[in-house]
């Protein structure tokens, strides 16, 4: 993921921001539904499972679209004065987030296939199995789905903490780059702390 040193925009494209926030809602909902459904035998268990499967496939599709959009438009450069370890953490965590967005639905789908469960997205709309029934594969994929879900959640917490750190403490424009709408403090921030890393602001 090499970023050009100078980019014309400081913010992600509207389509990228839309995808980010839409997926943020979907993925957080997905993780909450996941831990909720495996902890109950109440009737809501079935409702949660019925949402979990199509939502997982929706996230997979959105992640693939998002990856293509990212390849097309790239991302704004990180601030030049961001310490190297933070830069590295940002890059690695984003690889991990993309990896999980794509891997988790596939692991879930594979796990259902390996258990010989039909993968019903909606009554009458089944996905084909992607693996043959296999106890060993099912156990492996089940463990992967379970533990990676917690890793995913931990990574999202870290992502939120880092985003807020950029927004509230560093105030370096990184949060604003992905903010759903330009925040009124954006202009203030750049007036207050003009630095070379604050690039052109024509889109504010």
């Amino acid at each position: 993921m090499t970023r050009p040193e100078i980019r014309p925009e400081q913010r992600f494209k509207p389509i990228q921001r839309l995808l980010h926030w839409l997926m943020a809602i979907c993925i957080l909902a997905m993780l909450f539904i996941g831990v909720g459904m495996v902890s109950t035998i109440a009737p809501k268990y079935l409702t949660l499972v019925q949402i979990h499967k199509p939502l997982g496939i929706a996230i997979l599709v959105l992640a693939l679209i998002r990856l293509a959009v990212r390849a097309r438009y790239g991302a704004p450069a990180l601030p030049l004065d961001l310490p190297e370890p933070m830069k590295l953490a940002a890059e690695l965590s984003h690889y991990a987030l993309y990896g999980l967005m794509i891997a988790m639905p596939l692991i879930g789908w594979g796990m259902m296939s390996a258990a010989a469960y039909p993968v019903v997205l909606y009554p009458g709309w089944d996905l084909p199995p992607i693996l043959p029934q296999s106890d060993r594969l099912h156990a492996l994929l089940w463990d992967a789905h379970y533990y990676l879900a917690f890793a995913f959640f931990a990574l999202i917490l870290l992502h939120i903490a880092a985003a807020l750190f950029h927004a509230l403490v560093r105030r370096d424009g990184v949060f604003e780059a992905m903010a759903p709408i330009p925040s009124p403090t954006d202009a203030l921030t750049s007036v207050q702390r003009p630095t070379p890393r604050m690039l052109r602001t024509h889109d504010r």
């Binding site: 909450f32 909720g36 902890s39 109950t40 939120i160 903490a161 807020l164």
Partner: peptide, 27 residues
């Protein structure tokens, strides 16, 4: 503020998972 936001989301997650509800009938 950051700690509070992250803590609140983590707590909601733990609640959803039933970690605060020992009475919940789990599978």
């Amino acid at each position: 503020v950051i700690a509070a936001v992250v803590g609140a989301i983590a707590a909601a997650f733990a609640y959803t998972a039933g970690w605060f509800s020992p009475q919940r009938l789990t599978p």
